[in-house]
Design a binder for these strands. Structure first.
Lengths: 361, 361
DNA sequence: TCCCAAATCTGAAACGTTACAGGTAGGCTA
DNA sequence: TAGCCTACCTGTAACGTTTCAGATTTGGGA
């Protein structure tokens, strides 16, 4: 067998090509660079470069290689790429398994997938239970290098995960904002605007004693936004705020119902209520009605929702939509761009209740 | 430098070890087998085997290696394993992005994750839109070898995906059954029992003209199960079945509501209704009430639900719970065992309405 | 005629892992 | 003593990709 024998250029048999021939795809094996190299009579290196349009490869060769690749349905082996380059082509969605606000998770997943489906990226989901440290999945992903980017929610004003990821230079985007002087990609629903508009619409209905079901806990940023918008609305309107103690949006639905019944049977009961979650709203209504009151007459209720269930539930509820699917799309776009090197400050976006409302249809 | 010089056994410097020393972890690099090999003064091969308790490695060595590995927090590199063995350590959940029955997706995801979190497996989600061929994501996964196992839903009696995966020998588990003579792992909610029990509970309330909101389409298996259980209940009870035409469980909520209003305003209106989805039930109620009728008085409604919203919505609705999280756990366990080689027939399970009811609390 | 640069292409090495085919030492049997 | 078996460990190669450092050819300038 002539190794590197100086025949004419066209017939020369390089080692790489010989090698490719030796391991020629017996039948229906998944094609690799080697397969293409053999078919094209080129070296593996050349094929690799030709497929990514490298400038040092002749145009004719590129066309030829790309044609072959398309014809035989070549798909780069993810493990090979990942091992060599460290690039995983994976985005990880990290979320809290407990606090599932109706439809939030699924819509988020679908929104993200919509964007990723046009890229080589895959989506993995990494839930963590409440009893565990929220940092745990994050650390796992970073330490094992199992994703190129992370999307996470339930952001806190001073968020340990944001700090950790920033320090480690791992691209990420958060559903929700922070207040720690770190510029990072985020998408958020403007919950302050929502709470403010909610109060205003209650005022417009003549309600004067207004209450709000609090967000998950002051440690989650959007709870503060809600609070701020609520207070501003109350202050501007000169109305009275009634405090709802003992429950918040993450409390179990039955507890919310029971407590609400208590409150609405009490002497200082509110006549207008703001709620930031569709499922909690349903429990609130159950409590209100158990106290013998009627939505739209004795009390008005404004709620945010991410699926269109509330309209059917009680048409009297005033509803603002949060398009979580849209949020998923925004967040996916943001991480991808962050991975590509875009400045974080260009990857921060807000959704407003009104816009969403149109958007959602 | 002495290569393979015959010093004493204890001091011998093998090539692998020298090599490991050459690339010794500068600082805080992720440890690999090489790192451990260097620290233990062993070859990479030995370390690899020691970590998987191979019989040809001395017990003392195994202990030593495993101790080092634990101490320095060794995690096998997934890309390395995958490239070498073809094992991805990934389970892919393939689902339809459109027909989201309230909470189904998220609960499924959480259930699966619960099981996978105790294994090296990651979960990726691959949604497909209705306009696309359901086979497309399946083919993609198989062709690119991007998962070791697949979980999918919306199974059809004669399911092309089931056939394809079986032919290709790819482990999978389905949420729902097929009727094509292929034994494969599945988990299913017994919708026939549900429909049957639903009819019986309506009969027990004295209802005589009973209707059912159909499943997605006869092409999805569980629609047939519903139909079967429904017919059996009707026949046994000697009641009358009222046909609901024009809508099914996947129809948009507003269409369901409108059509329901029509039907309930008609002359031949049913006095008992069976519904297999929580969100559809809400739309049904909206339609019923728009026709001026009252649930629990003029009509009774039985519905399946996968989140506990309906009780709060109208306590009069008779509810059966489907624990989708449990289904997720079952399906995850099933694929894992299938991957391990368990006979498919041992990986088929059903959930019954009653059992679930207890289970769900 | 000779040399150089540009244009294309190439092989070897490496990423981390595992399978395969040894290798060596020590003890046992004949 | 030789031969063999067992217990334990080792190096090499390979999975598919990309990077690095050349090779080779061609054309042009001196």
């Amino acid at each position: 067998m002539a190794l590197d024998s100086p025949l004419t250029m066209k017939n020369k048999t390089s080692n790489q090509i010989l090698e490719a021939a030796a391991t020629a795809p017996a039948e229906a094996e998944r094609p690799t660079l080697k397969t293409i190299a053999f078919m094209a009579g080129l070296g593996v290196t050349t094929v690799s470069r030709a497929l990514k349009d490298a400038p040092e490869i002749g145009q004719a060769t590129k066309n030829r290689v790309q044609l072959i690749a398309k014809q035989i349905g070549y798909r780069p082996n993810r493990a090979g790429v990942r091992l060599r380059t460290g690039k995983t082509n994976v985005i990880s969605l990290v979320l809290n398994a407990q606090s599932e606000i109706m439809g939030l998770t699924s819509n988020m997943v679908y929104g993200i997938s919509e964007i990723l489906s046009q890229t080589p990226y895959h989506l993995t989901v990494t839930p963590y239970s409440v009893e565990n440290d929220p940092m745990q999945p994050i650390r796992y992903i970073v330490e094992t290098g199992s994703a190129d980017g992370i999307i996470m929610s339930r952001t806190e004003p001073n968020d340990a995960r944001v700090r950790y990821l920033t320090e480690h230079g791992i691209p990420f985007a958060t559903h929700g904002r922070t207040e720690m002087g770190i510029e990072h990609p985020f998408h958020d629903f403007d919950n302050e605007a929502f709470a403010y508009l909610s109060v205003r619409s209650l005022l417009a209905k003549g309600r004067r004693k207004i209450a709000m079901l609090a967000g998950p806990s002051p440690s989650v940023t959007y709870s503060r936004h809600l609070e701020r918008g609520f207070s501003r609305g109350i202050a501007e309107g000169g109305a009275g705020a009634v405090t709802v103690s003992g429950i918040e949006v993450d409390t179990s639905l039955s507890r919310i119902r029971d407590r609400m019944e208590e409150i609405m049977s009490g002497s200082n009961r509110p006549d207008g209520i703001v709620c930031c979650s569709g499922s909690a709203a349903i429990a609130l209504v159950a409590g209100i009605e158990a106290a013998g009151l009627k939505i739209g007459e004795d009390v008005d209720l404004v709620s945010k929702q991410s699926t269109d269930v509330l309209q059917w539930f009680r048409p009297q509820i005033i509803v603002f939509n949060e398009d979580v699917r849209h949020a998923g799309r925004e967040l996916a776009r943001a991480v991808l761009k962050r991975i590509a090197g875009t400045d974080p400050r260009e990857l921060q976006s807000l959704s407003y209740p009104d816009e969403n409302r149109r958007d959602a249809l």
